[in-house]
Design a protein around this nucleic acid. Structure first.
Length: 1039
RNA sequence: AGGCCCGUAGCUCAGUGGUAGAGCACUACCUUGACACGGUAGGGGUCGUCGGUUCGAUACCGACCGGGCCUACCA
């Protein structure tokens, strides 16, 4: 790249300037190549589900490409020998139809006009012209595919594999040819497998009844049908053997009213439900799957009356030559003329349609090739039972198993031209010779007049071999030895049966081992309303349009962030916009860093960039900058390591959304919102040691974030990496982020995380007071006291004081150590957090009533919260049966809440007092009363507040010296205040103002209140609590 | 008919047997020397309903109601 020397960034991220360059760079460097000879590094391989060669990229492809690329890049950076193998599928029917359509349009010709050979030449031409399009589209997304290994299912190599498999299966008796009933598409003119039949919602149809006269004229039997035209092919009427109504006529014959044929009434318990219709069923063995079985059970004639074109055959007598639907109307009319119509009832029915053309399918008798599937399915079931292949999300295991355990033989022949022609040859006598290459003579009679079977194989037949056919099978290749079995099969759950199951069966059978260790099934992408995207609905989002507009990184990140397990993705543009903003944010964070890294070289002296992000390792090991680090630096370093740990854990569990959310939160809300703001103090300041420490920390956090993010946002991270690397002259860093080590999991400095909690809490508290008291940020707060800190916290707060000043726009806050609270002073707002208390003097500007209201609100929440905990603690069952640590936690929390309440109420008491003093503003009384003050005791608050503020005056004077004396006074005062408060606030507020609550609501009230409070100090809470939560989760997982 | 998934803030969705979360949207304020694709603060939730298990259920179990998907089949 020529960007090596660039050390500045434009004001905003322009993806178009960046994306085009890097893909070529990676490819040219050979980063995408999987090394089949490298057995030292562990291998990690994925085969890309081959898109249809005719296809154009849609969001499903984009999702697949994104998730697989995330895995590949992550693994590559983590030291694996990665292979991601691309290719395309010839997509038999789909491609043939497209070319036929084109042919019809441009030359008004059918494939039959051209003949097989010429038609195939046209399809190949089409493939050459458009087949590379989808690959190029994958490149636009950044997919790190090994293009040197690109394959096509009709390549010579893969075709050879197909023939090999077919022949071997035939030799083993697992491929056979037979005349059976199959699903036939009259439009596509081909047989289909069960899976290609689409059973859509039941459609409104009708159930028509007619009578078959008994052959001897002694009566009739009424049958009901949804397909009257098939009655021409009826060869029996079936009734239930136990049905008393028909017992007498079982075994007798009926006469066909249109053809005069006679056939029997049979008793069949499997087919007939006596409750349904008339309890008598017409039987058409040649055109209905159930009837086919009945025919076999009773030795009935199979009379085909519908042809491959969907028209009635000559055997259909009076309706011969008619289209099947026309024949339906005609048959009804004819029978009605004979007085045999017995009425019509509306009826819901499900109709099988062709997956491709949507045409209603016709069950037809024909000779087709089949795979005897059960012997192949058994080992594939066992492999999953034994965990040799695992499904994620797990529930798909059931789906797979259910289908595999009830599998039917696979019809693999298709009456198409585009595909692998079946390697079977027939002589004039009809002997079949199956061979890898065209045989010279019939294997049975030696005849040399051979004709190859005209049919081709189901597209999915070659797809089933994809994981090993693409690696050179049937030869024993280094690629196979290195990369088979593949590590992960990542695809949509809509093709579990079509593809995943069949790869399992073929892989196990021919390779002796499963084709992949893990099957990760991603959700389906839908539009923002949850509807399937389709061209006819016009709700298709073109990934490339999105890429153009928002950038490939934004799209990729969006898709990853929405990929939760077990739920479809509803893609809304707002979401993509949000992640484009994220790329921009990252860009600007880097821009900030670059603007403040002058003179900084990392590492110094250069050292290799370790995989670890830990402050004790990596590029900042031995960094002299460590000397000047502050609590803020240590905090972000700890948070960085935690982000690394959580991201890696999420990736390992295929929780793409969690991984994305973790990095997002870290970059935006910790690195940008907090650390960059914190670092400004040092970066803009005069202290060279401090500045250097901040620079080193910033570089480390940023370089780690970029690497964490690279698999998700390859382009912007690569760009930023190159610029950052140049800026800090980090020659030891790889010059491509894709070649850099992924940050490694390591221990988190929890002390640094926890210790910083008060700083964040204090800043939040002051900002909160500003917000609620309507004091804009630009107004400098001159009178701020921070107290109730333990010794350690006080140390940290002192150390970070300059940063607190900057973040909250405060001048010279006073810090009290050793638990001493801030003074109780009028015209102040007070916030109490975990382990700290802040008083903000608001000069004359404080709205006492508003502050009282704010405090009252706060106390109300505390009360509710405390109430629920106290009730819990008062319950002997809870204390006895709950785990001791839970009880202990609640006790501690109750204490904390009580303490907090005490402090707030002391403040409130003092403030209430000022209201009664001459200076109080009369206009505020009303709102004060709304806050449930007790007007009947006007004197006491005043007394209390005087006591409190009087005592506080004393404290205030000693606070600047940290001392035991201060602590003693503080404690004494606090308890004095609490005593006073007891008198002022006669009873707990019962939140009685609100209208009578329902019994149910009472339960919810504390929670609601608690939540609000929790939300208020969310930053502090997040910082402080996360370690505990994570630890617990980790423990659980190990179980 | 059977199976699976889902129902949590206005929307799209995480999550958890012990203090309900994110993004977007919304409200107020702020162009502060990375970023208005920005910042700060705020409002907003009987976690579908009813039972059960439990000291404690949004989470586990059952039933039901709503939505979706899959498989099989209904003459």
């Amino acid at each position: 790249m020529n960007d090596q020397d660039r050390t500045e960034l434009a004001k905003g991220y322009e993806h178009k300037d960046v994306e085009a360059r890097w893909y070529r760079f990676w490819k040219a460097r050979g980063y995408f190549h999987g090394d089949e000879h490298d057995r030292a590094r562990p291998a990690f391989s994925i085969v890309l589900p081959p898109p249809n060669v005719t296809g154009s990229l849609h969001l499903g492809h984009a999702l697949t490409a994104t998730l697989q690329d995330v895995l590949i890049r992550w693994k590559k950076m983590s030291g694996f020998n990665t292979l991601w193998l691309p290719g395309t599928d010839h997509a038999g029917i789909a491609t043939q139809m497209i070319v036929e359509k084109e042919l019809k349009k441009t030359e008004k010709a059918s494939r039959h006009d051209l003949g097989r050979e010429e038609f195939l030449r046209r399809v190949w031409a089409w493939k050459e012209r458009y087949g590379s399009r989808i690959g190029e589209q994958h490149q636009a997304l950044g997919a790190a595919l090994d293009w040197d290994r690109e394959r096509f299912t009709m390549d010579e190599g893969l075709s050879r594999a197909v023939r090999e498999v077919f022949v071997r299966l035939h030799e083993e008796g697992l491929v056979y040819r037979e005349k059976k009933l199959i699903n036939w598409c009259p439009d596509c003119h081909t047989a289909l497998s069960d899976l290609e039949v689409e059973q859509k919602d039941a459609e409104q149809g009708e159930l028509w009844s007619f009578a078959y006269p008994l052959a001897d004229g002694s009566g009739e039997i009424v049958v009901a049908t949804t397909r009257p035209e098939t009655m021409l092919g009826d060869t029996a009427v079936a009734v239930h053997p136990d049905d008393g109504r028909y017992r007498a006529i079982v075994g007798r014959n009926v006469r066909h009213p249109l053809t005069g044929r006679e056939f029997p009434v049979v008793a069949d318990a499997i087919l007939v439900d006596p409750e349904f219709g008339t309890g008598a069923v017409k039987v058409t063995p040649a055109h209905d799957f159930n009837d086919f079985e009945v025919g076999k059970r009773h030795g009935l004639e199979q009379l085909a009356v519908i042809g491959p074109d969907g028209r009635m055959t000559a055997a259909a007598g009076p309706v011969a030559g008619l289209d099947r639907f026309e024949a339906r109307r005609r048959v009804k009319a004819l029978l009605a003329e004979q007085g045999l119509d017995r009425g019509t009832k509306p009826h819901l029915l499900a109709i099988g349609r062709c997956q491709r053309s949507g045409t209603i399918l016709e069950p037809l008798l024909s000779d087709q090739w089949y795979v005897r599937i059960e012997p192949l399915a058994r080992p594939a079931i066992e492999a999953v039972e034994q965990g040799r292949t695992r499904f994620i999300p797990e529930q798909w295991t059931n789906t797979y198993m259910a289908w595999m355990r009830n599998i039917h033989d696979w019809c693999i022949s298709r009456q198409l031209w585009w595909g692998h022609q079946i390697p079977a040859w027939y002589c004039a006598d009809g002997h079949v010779t199956v061979a890898r290459e065209a045989p010279a003579a019939c294997g049975t009679c030696g005849s040399t007049a051979l004709r190859q079977d005209e049919d081709v194989l189901d597209t999915w037949f070659s797809s089933a071999l994809w994981p090993f056919s693409t690696m050179g099978w049937p030869d024993d290749t280094p690629t196979l030895r290195t990369f088979y079995p593949t590590s992960v099969m990542e695809t949509g759950h809509d093709i579990i049966f079509f593809w995943v199951a069949r790869m399992m069966m073929m892989g196990i059978h021919f390779m002796g081992e499963v084709p992949f260790r893990i099957v990760y099934l991603h959700p389906m992408v839908r539009d923002e309303k949850g509807q399937k995207m389709s061209k006819t609905k016009g709700n298709v989002i073109d990934p490339l349009v999105i890429t153009e507009q928002y950038g490939a990184d934004a799209l990729r990140f969006t898709l990853a962030a929405l990929t939760a397990q077990g739920r479809d993705i509803k893609l809304a543009k707002e979401r993509i916009e949000g992640y484009r903003a994220f790329a921009n944010k990252l860009w600007n964070a880097s821009r900030f860093a670059l603007m403040n890294l002058d003179g900084f070289e990392s590492p110094h002296p250069p050292a290799p960039l370790s995989g670890s992000a830990g402050p004790e390792r990596g590029e900042i090991r031995g960094d002299p900058a460590a000397e000047g680090r502050t609590a803020a630096d240590r905090w972000i370093l700890a948070r960085t390591q935690r982000a690394v740990n959580e991201t890696v854990a999420a990736l390992e569990a295929f929780r793409f959304n969690e991984a994305a959310a973790t990095v997002y939160h870290f970059v935006w809300h910790e690195l940008c919102d907090w650390y960059i703001e914190l670092a400004k103090e040092a970066l803009y300041g005069d202290d060279a040691g401090r500045r250097r420490a901040a620079q080193g920390t910033l570089v480390h956090a940023l370089a780690t974030a970029l690497r964490l993010l690279h698999p998700f946002m390859p382009f912007v991270t690569e760009e930023l990496w190159s610029v950052l690397r140049a800026k800090v002259k980090a020659d030891a860093w790889p010059d491509a982020i894709l070649a850099a080590p992924y940050p490694a999991v390591g221990p988190v400095d929890e002390g640094a995380e926890r210790g910083f909690g008060p700083v964040i809490g204090i800043v939040d508290a002051i900002r909160n007071i500003r917000g609620e008291m309507n004091v804009p940020f630009k107004v400098v707060l001159e009178d701020v006291e921070i107290g109730s800190l333990d010794r350690e916290a006080a140390g940290t707060v002192r150390e970070e004081l300059a940063r607190i000043h900057r973040l909250a726009n405060v001048r010279d806050a006073v810090v009290h150590a050793d638990g001493a609270p801030p003074a109780r002073r009028p015209a102040s707002a007070v916030a109490v957090g975990a382990g700290f208390e802040v008083r903000v003097g608001l000069a004359g500007a404080v709205d006492v009533a508003a502050e009282l209201a704010r405090i009252a609100k706060e106390v109300e929440k505390l009360e509710a919260d405390l109430g629920s905990i106290e009730r819990k603690l008062a319950n002997p069952n809870f204390v006895q049966k709950a785990p001791p640590e839970v009880v202990e936690k609640d006790r501690a929390r109750a204490d904390e809440l009580r303490e907090k309440r005490g402090k707030l109420e002391a403040h409130r008491a003092m403030l209430s007092g000022t209201l009664d003093s001459p200076g109080a503003r009369p206009g505020r009384r009303e709102s004060m009363e709304n806050e449930n003050q007790n007007p009947s005791q006007p004197a006491q608050p005043s007394q209390a507040s005087q006591a409190a503020s009087g005592a506080m005056e004393t404290v205030e004077k000693v606070v600047t010296t940290v001392s035991e004396v201060g602590k003693a006074i503080g404690t004494a005062v606090a308890s004095g205040v609490e005593a006073a408060v007891e008198k002022v606030m006669p009873k707990r507020k019962k939140v009685a103002r609100k209208p009578a609550r329902k019994a149910k609501a009472r339960k919810a009230a504390p929670r609601r209140a608690a939540k609000k409070k929790a939300g208020k100090k969310k930053a502090a809470k997040k910082t402080a609590r996360r370690p505990a939560r994570r630890a617990k989760r980790g423990a659980k997982k190990r179980r």
